[in-house]
Design a protein around this nucleic acid. Structure first.
Lengths: 244, 244
DNA sequence: TCCTTTATAGTCAATTCGACTATAAAGGAG
DNA sequence: CTCCTTTATAGTCGAATTGACTATAAAGGA
């Protein structure tokens, strides 16, 4: 490898890499933020938990690979696939992050509503939801990826309308507030929360139907669906203004 | 290149890619936001302008490659290299983004103060600063990368202390305000701007020295340096709350 | 029939923000 | 030297937002 290599496509400068995608898939189940994990069936890290993912194929982009892997892992398809937020997180490229060869991984964060069942499909031994607080000791650098994705989601709830991605197609403001409280780990004042949400144009819109009761007890709540806005102005900040 | 497929990897799934970094380097010069471009000397796109960048080498991460390329292209080294903000933007992986082979590019955004001179150093035919508004018709998908980076910088000025990355080690509040006005393309009220900045803990801190006059005319201004905070709470929002 | 839980409507004071006014300290033009 | 323009910096004031509460109604369960 000469030091005076022109930019371009000098054969000595070109190094072959494998490119993979890794997915940090989040959902809110039973008042807890959970992540989707798979149990590795092969070396290295056989038997360890890891984020779902796989190789990017020759004819697809990283986004397409991520969507394909997500469908394989969760059984997400058709109408469900539409109610899914998938965004690129960042790329992890440390030499040595895979013990055998040079692998660059494009990480994605995905937010899905509470799905019926995870499907341990395809190549993974098993797949399951696990509270993010318990997701430690993952394979490769997946602890780090998951932590980065977790903080990204926490931060994006502040200034985007992403919270609705955790909710089903129709939801109550109480359910939306639960999402915020679960992801941020704080309690929010109910009247103030609904005042903020309803004052944010395009965040939620009322469904032209009848209300229903959700958890059984309590007064029936109005149903809302996600609005057309993508960002929140002004933002809905978490208390204690922490961004650790 | 070792065609040997490591054990445990599906040989049909593994596809070799080239991995590059592309840099969107921004500075504020003469009240205009400018980006660093190089003129390509080789096919494809010979003679066209492009973002600086290059291949990731076998023993380095994408971050290290980006820092290396930036040093080669701008002559940034030693003390200057410290006053530099470099952050990963996202990865571009469309098949066909390079006409000849499968290239995945990890894009970075860099913010530097007004440097003495760009250096068309090393491998590039020529390098120059160009107002971002005039940066069109770039090679590959670099128009898109630059646009994404531009919007990222605009957005991050709102909720981080990044604005100081465009300023020299010591700066006046007027200079910092110029950065915001230039990047956002709006005029800000001077008293209100300084009130917000000074009320944000850790954004700037006064230098324990004497004031000076900057542009020649006008009263002398106090000098500040970047504080220790990374994020702004509450954010400093651009007027008209636009996030196109 | 209570009692607990949840939804929803208000109130009120403190804080913040946007739009201004005012004053001082340069440098340049004449 | 004397305006005049430009910039820095200190305030003011009313409107809007926010955080902390109170109040009331409508469930379901014991």
């Amino acid at each position: 490898m000469s030091a005076e290599v022109p930019p371009g496509y000098d054969p000595y400068a070109f190094e072959p890499f494998a490119v993979t995608v890794d997915l940090a898939v989040f959902t809110v189940r039973e008042h807890v933020l959970q992540a989707l994990l798979i149990e590795r069936g092969e070396e290295p890290y056989a038997g360890r938990w890891a984020l779902p993912g796989g190789f990017v194929r020759r004819e697809e982009s990283a986004e397409e690979a991520a969507r394909r892997e997500l469908a394989e892992e969760t059984g997400l398809s058709g109408p469900n696939a539409a109610r899914l937020h998938l965004e690129q997180l960042r790329t992890y490229s440390d030499p040595g992050r895979d013990p055998r060869m040079r692998v660059v991984s494009v990480a994605f964060a995905a937010l899905v509503p509470d799905l019926p069942e995870p499907r341990g499909g395809g190549d993974a031994t098993g797949a399951c939801w696990r509270p993010v607080a318990d997701c430690t000791g993952l394979a490769f650098d997946h602890d780090r990826i998951l932590a980065d994705a977790h903080e990204r989601v926490r931060a994006k709830l502040e200034y985007t309308c992403l919270g609705t991605a955790f909710c089903p197609a129709a939801f109550t403001l109480g359910e939306l507030q639960q999402v915020y409280e679960t992801v941020w780990g704080v309690a929010l004042d109910r009247p103030n929360f609904r005042r903020k949400v309803l004052a944010s144009p395009g965040f939620v819109e009322r469904m032209p139907n009848a209300p229903r009761r959700t958890g059984g007890r309590g007064a029936p709540a109005a149903l809302y669906r996600a609005g057309s806005a993508a960002t929140l102005q002004p933002p809905l900040m978490r208390p204690e203004g922490r961004t650790p």
